[in-house]
Design a protein around this nucleic acid. Sequence first.
RNA 1: GGACUUGUAGCUCAAUGGUAGAGCGCUUCGUUUACAUCGAAGAUGUUGGGGGUUCAAAUCCCUCCAAGUCCACCA
Length: 694
Amino acid sequence: MDSKYQPQLVEEKIYKKWEDQGFFKASVNKKKKPFSIILPPPNANGSLHLGHAMFTYEDIMIRFNKMMGKETLWLLGLDHAGTETQFVFEKYLKKQGKSRYDYKRDELYKMIWDYVAENKNTIKSQLKRLGFALDWSKEKFTMDPEIVKIVYKTFKDLFDEGLVYRANKLINYCTNCGTSFSDLEVIYVERTDPLYYMKYGPFTLATVRPETKFGDTAVAVHPDDKRYKKWIGQEIEVDGLIGPFKVKVVADIAVDPKFGTGAVKVTPAHDFNDYEIAKRHNLPMKQVIGFDGKLNEHAGKYQGLRIFSARQQVVEDLKAKGHMVKIKEDYVHRVGTCYRCGKVLEPLPKEQWFIKVKPLADGAKKLIEKKETEVLPKRFKKRLTTILDDFIDWNISRQVVWGIRIPAYKCKSKNSWFISEEPPKKCQICDGDDFKQDEDTFDTWFSSAQWPYATLMTEGQETFDYFYPTSVMETGHDILRAWVARMMMIGYFSTKKTPFKTIFLHGMVRDSKGQKMSKSKGNVIDPILMIDKYGADALRSALIFGIKEGGDVSLSEEKVIGMRNFINKIWNMGRFIEMNLQAPNSKSQVTNKSKTLNELQKEYKKEKKQYIKYMDSYQFSKALGLVYEFIWHRFADYYIEQLKDEVINGNIEALGKLKEVYLENLKMLHPFTPFVTETVWKVFNGESILLEKL
RNA sequence: GGACUUGUAGCUCAAUGGUAGAGCGCUUCGUUUACAUCGAAGAUGUUGGGGGUUCAAAUCCCUCCAAGUCCACCA
């Protein structure tokens, strides 16, 4: 054994051997208890970051449970990440002076497919670098034909039960990216904009968006506002920029009498609150902004102007007309922006597919109440129930090519929709046969919401029955709403079971100062670079060591180095024992250190018991800390030092005890630091440490 | 506006009612020694402030201050 452990020389070989020997391959084994985890599928559009390295928790659970005698399955898959991948690809096209509109639908699709295929390989090799005990024989992709089939079936089932409907509602639309989003994908940012007070018939009212004025269909005031009481129910005439028009005055409690002038123009087609007011008062919708982000024919001479230019023009013209009463320049408010491109989202009316969430959310809530799904750390349980309570209907239509195309067909003569995997032959209503498939694709989260059961179903009924519900869903708490809650809703709907018995949420990776890592801050640490420099074991332990479960991790290169030192220490303890086993010293059987050996045995027993307790209760950081403390500061610093002279002089009993305790500790460490423990284990025993029982 | 989390050594964090600890950093000493990616010894604390419960509080309760996260979305 060398005086230094060099992970670069062994990690790749070891991983390959594990893989070749089929150690990660799971199969139905009725004699063993199953333990299964579905890997949260990384997006197939880039490379792994530190957030993915946090899946180390899953590897720890898989390896630990395997060594505890369970049949373990860690199933991997990759996500096509619809809008996000297409966005990344469009940026790539832009660099070459092209745009998505230069290609036909199937051309673009094919190009992205190839691009994704390349990225998939990068990600897969990176997952191996991390040492993850994934079952490569069951690799999935969200766009595999068998998966798509299940996604289609779920959609149809939901439709048949009345939980999917098509409606013309206000949605968040990015006119730059050309697609709609669900409410969860909106990022609100604080902005300072002018607040315009303008004359409006007999009123003065305040608005940030005078350019939407052409779409006004009412004025709303608070029902108790004395100033305006006499106008409620009346129709007023407004001298508009493109001619006079009439609107109704309605009373609605959504109006804050203290804000602005207490009177608000109602533009149902371009504002979520106004849309709600309009529904309550049966007001018409008048769309004046198109999906291209320009004013349409209802805006008269302003037609064709982009939103912002239109606003400036309207403001000028209102001033010229003497209708601008005042302008509050420093009005601070929040606007919804696109998470992809950062541009302001437009609320626009569009016909889309929606999922009726309430009944599904109630089902998911029952799982928590009945404790069929356990949430760890506990504090997230409340968060999850709140999320389920607040869920609003989910817009699942996306206007992108890259994704699973929605299996909905419209009969052209009757305008009615049919849901089916294959194009329908005949319209059940009018006997017509002229169908057109919906151009849209599913929100990526619609397919990933089905991931735990969809992946297992493609492996056959027996595998599904054995491994489902999965044991643990381990992921970041940042996607509790977007993913975990939806998996529970859809998973319960489709299988009548919880998709996972335990939810284990990890924290976010931050930099050494506790700040969020981001490219713009330049504080991003590349996991693969850390592995190249210090080994996978060092990176893995650095992510787990010394943190509260579910808490954020502050990661620095120094911390990785610290753990690299620990790995090297483990190696050198083994080296010390191995050297003495090899030493040709005259052997004396006598020991006068039996007291020390007894202490060691006692201390080790206590350690192991505590270790199992921590591991069983998902307190992995504590388990690692415990072994770290014992093996380094007790075993090495104390016991080896106490017994060193004896051992060198050939005390076999002492050496044997050291070896025994050391090997036991290697096993305990293996889930955390698989490579070094396997390497050393093989020095003492030819076989893999993975075959050992804890 | 609502919910949650956090505040402990210079920094990052543990300690789940019972002697305040670790890693990194710092000071001194030690290498023909398994490991200098090491070891030994040491310094550094009004546990954010104040009040309460208790034999006993970093820990439980109240309150104030500060930071962060998620949600709601303000015309």
